[in-house]
Write a protein that binds this DNA or RNA. Sequence first.
DNA 1: CATACTCTGGAACGGATGTTCTATAATACA
DNA 2: TGTATTATAGAACATCCGTTCCAGAGTATG
Lengths: 193, 193
Amino acid sequence: MPRPRAFDEESVLDNAMNIFWRKGFETTSVQDLVEETGLNRASMYSSFGDKKALFLRVLEHYSAKISTKRFEKLRETADGREAIVATFKDTTLQCCNDGRFKGCLMVNSGMELAPHDPDIAAISHRAFRRVEDMFANALRRGVDAGTISGDKNIRALARFLAASFQGVQLMARRGSDPETLQDYTETILAALD
Amino acid sequence: MPRPRAFDEESVLDNAMNIFWRKGFETTSVQDLVEETGLNRASMYSSFGDKKALFLRVLEHYSAKISTKRFEKLRETADGREAIVATFKDTTLQCCNDGRFKGCLMVNSGMELAPHDPDIAAISHRAFRRVEDMFANALRRGVDAGTISGDKNIRALARFLAASFQGVQLMARRGSDPETLQDYTETILAALD
DNA sequence: CATACTCTGGAACGGATGTTCTATAATACA
DNA sequence: TGTATTATAGAACATCCGTTCCAGAGTATG
């Protein structure tokens, strides 16, 4: 019976994600969202709730679409060491070529909101933990394959890699020059030796 | 002739710094600043210009007061290796005990504003470079003292340390748990071996 | 074709934003 | 002591914020 929606939820989330990613939560106005998504104010509120609810949906969307893809090789490359190296190199290269200083939406949001917003703090914490676990798995695969020394503290090294991965994206958002980023990444990866 | 000021500029900057540090630039309102500093609106505008001008003064103040102190040991401890280790351990401990997730004002501001504000991007970039240079100096002292191996790439290692130092403060602001932070710091410092 | 229902466009809401203005208070020098 | 000069207090400004409301558009079913 009802009038069908004139918008595609996926593409609305894509567009909303891009503004939030570029500008951050507070600086992005509902007006910005309306203009960028093409969606009407009323439709936005009836379909997604308020601004924060939309933002939470965007974070899920980011995890599912961007983050999942960014860690694809980390999860799937058979040799753990190769998986880790490729993940860092790909992201570093991507950050350099981006040129728009977006960094990582999850990192940005954690920095901006976690101190004041327990919901975001929890999401951000879980996201970090997921990444940490992915690195830990890759490290174990590396140890099994013999490309990573067996006497490493896997958990500590995984935490280091996860934190350093965030560090790379912090540097990218701040607009770091490529040489600095490359020096940084190479030294991070030296921890695998 | 004129009526003397009823406020102390130093303490106004201290208070303003603390709000900006906690809340970030955009989220801090002029009302917040008026309440926290005790300074009148008109006095604020006549003495410091607008909100952004005050923020720039606060960043200088932060560099001179907080940042300088934070890197005191890094600059002054004779043995470079000891200087670096102490700097990381002190800051990590301080971050854990803070409990208010403030992180580093310079890092926070760079993340929030650098992509959209060239002034902040430049300030943030210079600040990073200064830290990088301090680490490089410490590394050279360590090499001279024989506590750091001579075949290291000093510049790359300094960049790694400076970036990782930011990483620690990123983690702190996000509210990372102490064990993760400690694992992270210890693995960073292993790069000195 | 009529009805029921949801979506859409845009105006409207109260409140908060950064900034400026005006009137008054307070001092140092003539 | 009177005057010049600046600081202060607080009202006032236009603008933007997130959110809500209402009138009308559009379609699947009866």
